[in-house]
Design a protein around this nucleic acid. Sequence first.
DNA 1: GTGAAAGCGCTAACAA
DNA 2: TTGTTAGCGCTTTCAC
Lengths: 336, 336
Amino acid sequence: MTTIYDIARAAGVTATTVSNVLSGKGSVSSATRARVMQCAEELKYSPNLVARSLIKGRTGVLGLVFPSIDNPFYAEITAAMERLAYQAGFRIFVSTFSNGDQTGQKMLKDLALRRVDGVIIFSAAISLEIIQSLSLPHLPIIYCLEEEMQPCPFPTLFYDFFQGGKLAGEHLLSSGHRHIGLLTDIGDQGQYCHIARVKGLQAALAAYNLTLDSRLIKNGRSDVEAGKSAGYELLTQPDRPSAVFATNDMMAIGLMAAAWELNIQIPRDLSVIGFDSISIGRYTTPPLTTIKIDIEMLATEAINLLLHHIDHPSSSQSIVLPATLLEGASTGPHLL
Amino acid sequence: MTTIYDIARAAGVTATTVSNVLSGKGSVSSATRARVMQCAEELKYSPNLVARSLIKGRTGVLGLVFPSIDNPFYAEITAAMERLAYQAGFRIFVSTFSNGDQTGQKMLKDLALRRVDGVIIFSAAISLEIIQSLSLPHLPIIYCLEEEMQPCPFPTLFYDFFQGGKLAGEHLLSSGHRHIGLLTDIGDQGQYCHIARVKGLQAALAAYNLTLDSRLIKNGRSDVEAGKSAGYELLTQPDRPSAVFATNDMMAIGLMAAAWELNIQIPRDLSVIGFDSISIGRYTTPPLTTIKIDIEMLATEAINLLLHHIDHPSSSQSIVLPATLLEGASTGPHLL
DNA sequence: GTGAAAGCGCTAACAA
DNA sequence: TTGTTAGCGCTTTCAC
């Protein structure tokens, strides 16, 4: 590894001058500049960003923490953020973790130890209390996609999940469905992970003087296999629903697979609506009706919020983005 | 930020002793040990891994470079590698890039500047020449999934894509298909990105005294939208195939979406076989027949290869893993 | 068992 | 325009 000292020696100057040349700072005569540049080239110098980070107190890296990159929703967010961060001169250090154990918080802590300049956390498994217990002093944090808004010591980016759930319910109700099933994520501690979406559905039902039928609620994790098995239960019971709201797209896709195996046709025999608008959902057969979360917008706002927060640590603004309906072909009128 | 000097001052010892306590090295009396520990606790000390990396010359980070995390194939690899690396005390720094520009190589270079302990590269867009032109001295590199094996200065992990393509072809041929279409990835420079898979198909055809019909070859990128639009072309032409080999699953899923819109039933009217065995493929309707790449095995071997290579830089072993057939329900006998 | 000194590779005051 | 000095936070000989 060649260092600036090697270049300095070769060029007959001091390390400071080399540093000045390479960073374009200070004033250096064009003669020495050329000489230094040439030596750097010949010695195949490349800067050690670890050393630079140490002295600058900045790494140029942003951390991203979320569960399961296996969910395309997060993969798409990652791709968007990586691109946006790169344009702003930052890199993204992704940390994912399989739910359950404490890997998530350990990874978050590790990001802090590595002195990332800030992190974006997608809640799900890392609660506010956990974050605070980790003692991450001065680490700029943006908290994203918490299901329900709550007082938060750092900036928050929030999608209107309640409104999304309500839109999903209204869409099914306005198509004549009255017997509506729910497929949702229930975490390890039995909490509803998608509580706002569920409440939104309930609000839509209430407007029709209906309530959620507990027999039509099935719980699982947020992945496709859980959606399939819970979907099986839902569809094989005596009085099965004519429409189902799955609180994320992966579960909806699993449900569609279950329906296919049971020879239940979508949307003729069953309407399915998801949540997230992952891109693969536009290629299922039929294409999935879903609640759209604008990932590009989400990523843009989150990155901007974080970059702003890094420069202005006192700021604590919060942003709420709207969820909208994205009609596919997996929902249709209630027949018979 | 509290440093070991803060602790040293508080505990009335020197930084060396603090370092010894925290690292468990050297010999420290249990009295000072306790005192130091307590001060560390009270001051909420956490080590600066940037400084540690600088002096140790190791970061404990492994780089992972591949195109498009939007392809679940890579997302699944990432998840597996992240888990395995974590167990070995390493973290994964993922770098993805949208094909085309030179972002990929810039990111690879950047990983080197950040002094990751090694990288795993999934070829596709980063050729051997590019890697060599980047001058990454002493950076342990594992090269993965190059389509065809070739002499390589560093260890290689390789799946037998030719054999996979052959298996795909044989599967379709043995089901009676003779009019077989091909949906494959043609890169920006017009090169076949999945050339070994195509050659495998050709070998299978040759055993039946058949050749690839150029009218039945459609090219696109490796993503689902390209698969759909190329699939459209393939399925709407006069003499459409009875079976199609898509050289990756995302394209296969796009093709199935096109077939659905054209009201072509799978597998009755059209057999579809993919490549990669991404997990979502087991939930399409019908579930996708594909060539299985064992991602768990791939990740395990790649990580092991890299960790070994880090400790033994001279090693240059290569591993070839077998591709196998994974039957779904998207292929069936050729009817009529 | 503890500390003094040196240094990882770089940058930033400040002098010259 | 260039060099001297100091230091980012940590680890590591090597004395004591």
